[in-house]
Design a protein around this nucleic acid. Sequence first.
DNA 1: CGCACCACAATTTTT
DNA 2: TTGTGGTGCG
Length: 808
Amino acid sequence: MNEQEFKNRYVKARRELIKLSFSHLNNMQREAVMTTEGPLLLLAGAGSGKTTVLINRIANLLRFGRASDSTDIPETAGEEDLHILEAAAADPDFNEMAKARRLCALEPCEPWRIIAITFTNKAAGELKDRLENMLGPEARDIWALTFHSACLRILRRHSEKLGYGSSFTVYDTADSQSVMKAILKEMELDEKMFPHRSILGYISRAKDEMQTPQEFLAQAKATGDIRRQRIGECYLAYSNRLKDNDAMDFDDLIYNTVRLLEEHKDIREYYQDRFRYVLIDEYQDTNNLQYRLATALAGGRGNICVVGDDDQSIYKFRGATIENILSFESRYKNARVIRLEQNYRSTGNILGAANALIQNNQARKGKELWTEKERGEKLLLYVAQNENDEAQYVSTRLLEGFAAGINWRENAVLYRMNAQSNKLEYAFKRNGIPYRIVGGMRFFDRAEIKDILAYLCVINIPHDDLRLERIINTPPRGIGGKTIETAKLIAQEKGTSLYNIVKNAREYPQLSRSFAKLMDFANMLDELREASETVGADELFDLLIEKSGYIRALEAKLSDENRAKIENVRELKTNIISYIKDSGDSSLSGFLDDVALYTDLDSLNADTDCVVMMTMHSAKGLEFDNVFIVGVEEGIFPSARCMGEAEEMEEERRLCYVGMTRARKTLTLCCARQRMVFGTTSSNKPSRFVDEIPSEYIERNESARNDDFLSGSYSRPYPVFNTKTEGRSFGTEGASPQKKRGISPPAPSSAAAKGDFKTGDSVNHKAFGSGVITKMTPMGNDCLVEIEFKNGAKRFMLRAAAPQLTKE
DNA sequence: CGCACCACAATTTTT
DNA sequence: TTGTGGTGCG
């Protein structure tokens, strides 16, 4: 046997054996797992087992290194080794399997040399969990992080190179907005002409193109664009303000990391050497900066694997550029492309419809999902009379499903705009359907949570002027706007922080009127900061609540709203405790860093059995047995905004594709002949997307109903009830401030529309089974009915529930 | 300084 | 229709 033949047989046997380790994957998945070297584009269709591939690929790297993708063999390899490999590859029960596997390894990768970057904390967390489950504790050394947390980690080590302190703060969107508002005020720019949000949009785009304020201004001057010049001045002022406060916004985290890597050879080489393998998830959602970051990190060995689906690119408005995925092959020479097209989620009909729809797009790589599953049920288009009919239809279907043994949580209702959730909410409440809304107001966006976090920030870093200003008079302690204004001015003159002025208020005659209050405040902060050096973040939290009197102030006026706020603040402590438990770090700064990038805790305690409602954007990455997409009408979906814009229209179509491919078993589309949008009624045609689905996949069902039940009183607001229903809350029940609604006074007439039910009646509900009516409260020309079922009490509006109810 | 009232606008969202 | 932000009064 000559050397070449030996080598070929060795490599072949080794590859075969590694294959056996991944025999549970399909061919394409396995190919992706075993392609370890060089640039790799993984086009992973919806439901194609993308995360499984990612995890197995990492497992392969740790166990076998580059062996599956290399023709190199160890110098020490001898004929005996070859025999072991060949024997093992031929016989899964080979008795020296462990030894054979060890022979397969070629430079196995240390876990800390792998970085896997995702977009959301949820995705990063999921990745971490699944890696640890598969690989054990060594998986903890893998950098499985979001773009932002990875950058934060890098920047904390090198921030001084960029002129920041090592304990710089991170501003969230709201912080950025308040800074921009202040700047606009100072520059006396009209909010009408220069809305702060759109200015921030320009800044974000400039950063994405790595344009400095100076360059932005120069360019604006060159073109003579006055408006752009003003914006450039805002950009400059904004950058300076953040710099002065030693703060970075979300974009800066990435922008500065890219600068750090591009401008500092030593640092770049350190990371390029460290990270042998770079993986980027959801590549279709990356923007230019993120592309440059990935390129910089992978620049050493060129082992970059990006995973994405061009057909699911729905975040253009947020700066994502589909170009990144479309031009991967031309940007990275020798790139290999692997398509994962086998779908493990949906039935044949759902996939057929989705494939047909997405084929109408031009800008795509081309990919067709297929499945081994049965065709399943056809999709259904329900044409409702109006949005109430639509909501009632979905409710009825959900009740039918529940009666047939389907858990609520297996259903999702998806829509284009959050505003559409309202009518559905009312219908669900009337019908006693428990639901949960994803999105909307988030836990960390709530005023009370931001307040407490602001306290913690200031305790951590006293010169955090922005946060200090937020809490200086929250709860009210008699420090008014005038005082704050004066103190800020002095601080500016002296070139010091607001905190220093407040602390030494006695020295400034301008502040004489309120210096005692200011100093009390500063003393409180000092005491807390002192405490923070000895106690953990959880204990500090208790001290903070005590000393600041925050909860006491809320308790003074115990409205429903304040009750909910108090509960939320207490909930925050749960967060602190779970952070400490998960990370083993009880330091305040650690918690704050984590929280700065962590806004989405909703998903964490999503364990109650509820129907899930959300936008199609939020639904990306999720799956449900039964999916309802509502508002499938021209002008709503696709939205009126993108009419005539071919590119935008394609993005809407991708959004539709994303929505449809969430469904495992059934998919129902709903549209209404008439709909109230923003207070005015309009009638829209069914969406063009419906027409793009061939009739072999979809059935149509016109609304047959046309009674007063639909057109009459239903659009009126109804009181909030149903004990099992969660509102727009962060998990634990009832933690959200209940919305105040105009509750119409009970009308004298108790015109219980259908049938003649009365208190004490035994009834049977189609979905909830038998029960007894315990209470009936007339309301308007309807009636609130409370029924005691075996599994607890429920409340309904009689008109909605009547079709489901029979007397026993 | 807090609250009530009016004008106004209004996809999609993560960090 | 709903929520928000700004202004003006008590």
